[in-house]
């Protein structure tokens, strides 16, 4: 009795006269997520790009079509400076974490004692929220009581305390260092995972053939890790190209605009300058560059899939 009741119920549901096709059913499953993406990403993105062609304010109603005027203003104005500073920040915050992360991955992969504990500890910088990274480095770089000044004075690298975050000459370097501290653990984890897929037999065979450590690094490790190295560099580059939090909290793009990147410039122009048209124009140019990077990334990951 008890077993027949549910089974008959089930068969009635599946024998419904009109059953949705699998395609329609799958679409219904996708729908909530798709609606969110369209409402929160696609629609705002398109309208933001469209504002590039209008004179529009965040606080006043109405707008006026101005054609390419905003874009010309940006291109003849801050564009080259923003591009240069964004590139400096992005390249710095991609290469330094890569070098540190790779060195650590190689070291931990030799299975020195306590490698597992060390790996866990090294992840701390990557775990803390972005604003915490900013607070901490703001304190370290503090002009009057900062530990960075004390350290560098102690080893004789500087004569007097520096206001690292308030001098155009040093602010970008300070911001890059803070972001590097946050990013390298991710690089380490990814590269360590890659290193452990390199077949041991390759190293053993090469060692029997007389290849030294350095030779094996360049002839076995690097070629075997080509895929993962390309991936982490590309992803990190794309992320840093649009990084906002740490720069914004540490310097707000200052001093004298010396740490302004596309991300902080768009934000400042829209929410402190209230000039949506100008912000949209910076954003449009930024998006064109970013899309080029994403195309490279998609090509790259498709190639990885074929392998």
């Amino acid at each position: 009795m008890t077993t027949t009741a549910p089974s008959s119920q089930l068969s009635t549901t599946s024998n419904k006269p009109k059953r949705l096709s699998d395609g329609v059913f799958a679409f219904l499953l996708v729908l909530p997520g798709l609606a969110l993406l369209l409402a929160v990403v696609v629609y705002p993105l398109i309208t933001a790009l469209v504002t590039a062609f209008f004179k529009q304010s965040l606080v006043l109603p109405g707008r006026e079509f101005v054609g390419f005027q905003n874009i010309i203003d940006v291109l003849t104005g801050e564009f080259s400076r923003l591009l240069w500073q964004t590139l400096v920040f992005t390249i710095g915050t991609t290469l330094f974490p890569f070098v540190i992360g790779f060195a650590l991955a190689l070291a931990l992969n030799t299975r020195i004692r306590g490698a597992k504990v060390l790996r866990g500890l090294m992840l701390i910088p990557w775990l803390v929220p972005g604003v915490v990274v900013s607070f901490l480095w703001m304190w370290i770089f503090n002009a009057n009581y900062g530990v960075m000044n004390a350290l560098l004075e102690g080893i004789g690298l500087i004569d007097q305390p520096q206001a690292w975050l308030a001098q155009p000459a040093t602010a970008m370097g300070a911001v890059i260092l803070a972001k590097t501290w946050q990013s390298f653990p991710w690089m380490m984890v990814m590269l360590l995972a890659g290193l452990q897929t390199v077949p041991r037999e390759l190293h053993e065979a090469a060692e029997i053939d007389g290849a030294g450590t350095i030779r094996r690094f360049f002839s076995i490790t690097v070629p075997q890790l080509k895929g993962i190295i390309g991936l982490v560099l590309l992803l990190e580059f794309i992320w840093n190209f649009q990084h906002f939090d740490i720069i914004y909290v540490l310097t707000g793009g200052g001093p004298a605009g010396s740490t302004q990147t596309f991300a902080t410039a768009v934000y400042e122009t829209a929410f402190h300058g209230f000039d949506l048209g100008h912000a949209g124009a910076i954003g449009l140019l930024w998006m064109v560059l970013l899309m080029a990077l994403v195309v490279v990334y998609v090509r790259f990951s498709e190639k990885g899939e074929e392998r």
Partner: peptide, 10 residues
């Protein structure tokens, strides 16, 4: 991959 600072504008 889309920049959040830009999405926020609108």
């Amino acid at each position: 991959m889309f920049p959040q600072a830009l999405l926020l504008v609108t």
